[in-house]
Nucleic acid binder design. Structure first.
Length: 665
DNA sequence: GCGAGTGTAAACAACA
DNA sequence: CTGTTGTTTACACTCG
């Protein structure tokens, strides 16, 4: 089945091996990091953008626009094209740099972290980035405001010159656009799940904002600002009131923009007016309404003037809240408020995500029993054979590069392995009983398939998995290679030393039995041997044992069993019918496998399922100790049959293939 | 500190 | 001769 591709891969091996190995060594050696990632992030996009890339791109776009605004502003709008290239003054949010591929050790992170962890980490980074971005926006807006005020000062001096009014208008429009940009960007972030709030939920209760301005303070602030307000000349009315921009049309066309447009410049309706709108939680959408007018009163911060109708309100706006120092200052204050809120929003969102993550993964909880959540995903997984994965997952991994693809896992789906992968690079969790390789693999199959992430499994586990996945439980070395490259992008790209490692493992571990076949040598798995080396670990997993024994809800137990089942029956995961409901009893005799052996030990301590007695395996298994030639020579073919059919089959196959079926009932 | 398990690197032999 | 396959050894690292 995999032979075809096998030949390709292998043929390409000689050339790629050397080339990659040099590249790979540093990575594997623990030094490098970044090699694989660099390639993944920069060159292997395959036309698709990973979430991070998208985010980065959006940020860059936003920053570009912001830079242009600032540039225009800096050049007094007169020479917009002056020094376009050099904007050292513009500070790129740190996070942007942080996301750049060449930074730090993404590769290492990939090796260390499982996809869910990567996701969590990414989200954290993005939350931070969000904050930084907001702060960045804030600074830019402040600068804009300063510029605006400066211009206004100048404008006063030069008295009522139309061009100047235009300048102010332009500035304010920039300001508006800036805000819009910010909002749009925030919205984009929200859409990407970085901010969990719905766009429409813009109103954040002020009382929930510890460091934000409290309502009373706001009012006070507004009153202070309002109090010191000289009446400005009428001309300033023409200066566009930033917030209202009512129909006091003067000479500038921009000012003539109809209120709805100016207030809802963005297609999605999220616009700069959020400043006022957020403050006034009631923003009616009725056509004749005004964002600053509601319930018969002016919603201008600190105003509350009663207006009978919209016309009166407009008049009021034009007279009381025209473009003057006071209004500008108020607007700025409001902007501060909004930014505070947005920062707070980011923080709260981050907190929310952390909370969700915590509640769903239960770090201190026994891993196998975080499964109930995984259960769903694995069930979903099982439906989707090998390719299509989880629906309902926010960000299906599409990018071949995407180490970030784990985003697809929502906070609710955090594989148990997550917790284990936190360790050093060398740590592989598959053997730890905590995370069944199959379930982990199944859940993150697509991820590993596409992302250049090193799977957190030992070579032995992977080899075994590859072999067990085949119908006849045997693979040639070449086919094993193929399985690796097919299943893991990491082994496609980082083709350095792993083949050697595979061979090394095959030779080293007794559990891998080489059998001479008609068409050459094939490798099989001696499950007994494989389990031999594992039980100690299992026993050594106090949490697992404890939790298995201690009063577990059926669901949890079931889940753990499911995981165990998954571990032992990776291919079965691809079968929707196999996994769904596995009865505890059914699973009890599943085990021929790591987990199952686990179950036996735990569960039994006396009463095991008899069918799994070692004796059944022992006599037929041909381990490495025995001269392979003897095996091969004596009964080349029969050996195969013995190993695969007689030995593993009766129990093995029953377990692995039929059992799940039983579980169905 | 020790041993087991694991990963990596390398040398080597047998073979096609 | 070259490349693949398979074995073996050595070393480093992590973890219990």
């Amino acid at each position: 089945m995999m032979v075809e591709s096998a030949s390709e891969t292998i043929r390409s091996t000689p050339s790629s091996q050397n080339g990659v190995s040099s590249l790979n060594n540093p990575t594997d050696g623990g030094g490098g990091g970044g090699c694989g990632r660099e390639g993944g992030a920069s060159g292997e996009t395959n036309g698709e953008m990973s979430p991070v890339e998208l985010l980065h791109f959006q940020q860059q776009q936003a920053l570009q626009v912001a830079r242009q605004f600032l540039l225009q502003q800096a050049t007094g709008l007169t020479s917009p094209s002056s020094n376009e290239n050099k904007q050292p003054a513009v500070q790129v949010p740190v996070s942007v740099a942080m996301m750049s591929p060449q930074m730090i050790t993404p590769q290492q992170m990939q090796q260390i972290l499982s996809p869910p962890q990567l996701q969590a980490l990414l989200q954290q980074q993005q939350a931070i980035m969000l904050q930084q971005l907001q702060e960045y926006y804030k600074k830019q807006q402040e600068q804009l405001h300063l510029q605006l005020l400066t211009q206004q000062q100048a404008g006063k001096q030069q008295a009522k010159e139309q061009p100047l009014g235009n300048k102010q208008l332009a500035f304010q429009q920039q300001l508006l656009q800036m805000q819009q940009l910010q909002q749009q960007h925030l919205l984009n972030l929200q859409r990407q799940g970085l901010v969990s709030l719905q766009p429409g939920q813009g109103t954040v209760p002020l009382q929930t904002l510890p460091q934000a301005v409290c309502p009373s303070d706001l009012q006070q602030l507004w009153k202070e600002v309002t109090a010191t307000q000289p009446v400005e000349d009428s001309i300033k009315q023409e200066g566009l009131d930033l917030s209202t921009n009512t129909s006091n049309s003067t000479s500038f066309s921009a000012a003539k923009v109809s209120p709805p447009i100016s207030h809802h410049p963005l297609p999605n309706g999220q616009n700069a007016m959020l400043t006022q709108r957020r403050d006034s939680s009631s923003h009616e959408e009725t056509p004749g309404s005004h964002p600053l007018y509601g319930h018969g009163e002016c919603k201008w911060p600190g105003c509350e003037t009663l207006c009978e109708d919209l016309g009166q309100f407009v008049k009021h706006l034009n007279t009381e809240h025209a473009l003057d120092d006071r209004s500008t200052a108020q607007c700025r204050v409001q902007m501060q408020v909004v930014q505070q809120l947005e920062i707070q929003l980011a923080k709260e969102s981050e907190r929310l995500q952390a909370m969700m993550a915590h509640l769903h993964m239960r770090p201190s909880e026994p891993k196998p029993f975080s499964q109930p959540l995984n259960l769903v995903s694995s069930a979903t997984l099982s439906k989707s054979t090998s390719d299509t994965f989880p629906d309902g997952l926010p960000h299906p991994p599409t990018s071949a590069t995407a180490p970030i693809t784990p985003l697809r896992q929502g906070p609710s789906v955090i594989s148990s392995s997550t917790l284990h992968n936190v360790g050093p690079i060398r740590r592989r969790n598959s053997d730890k009983f905590c995370t069944p390789i199959s379930s982990e693999l199944a859940q993150n199959h697509e991820f590993y398939k596409n992302a250049d992430v090193r799977p957190p499994f030992t070579y032995a586990s992977l080899i075994r998995q590859a072999i067990l996945e085949t119908p006849d439980r045997q693979l040639t070395l070449n086919e094993i290679y193929n399985w690796f490259t097919r299943m893991f992008a990491y082994f496609r790209r980082n083709t350095a030393t792993w083949k050697n490692a595979v061979r090394h493992n095959l030779s080293l571990h007794k559990c891998f039995v080489r059998v001479e076949n008609v068409k050459g040598a094939v490798w099989t798995v001696d499950e007994l041997e494989y389990q031999k080396r594992r039980p100690p670990k299992m026993t050594g997993s106090p949490t697992l044992v404890k939790n298995m024994i201690s009063g577990l809800s059926y669901g949890a137990l079931n889940a753990s069993y499911q995981a165990a089942l998954a571990e032992s029956n990776f291919p079965l995961l691809n079968n929707p019918t196999m996994i769904n409901t596995s009865s505890t009893s059914g699973m009890l005799h599943v085990g021929h496998d790591d987990v199952s052996s686990t179950v036996e030990q735990v569960n039994s301590n006396g009463s095991n399922s008899p069918r799994l007695s070692p004796q059944q395996y022992s006599h037929q298994v041909h381990v490495k100790e025995e001269p392979t030639e003897t095996e091969d020579d004596s009964r080349p073919v029969s050996l195969m049959g013995t190993t695969n059919q007689n030995v593993t089959i009766p129990d093995d196959r029953d377990m692995e293939e039929e059992l799940p079926v039983e579980d169905l009932s």
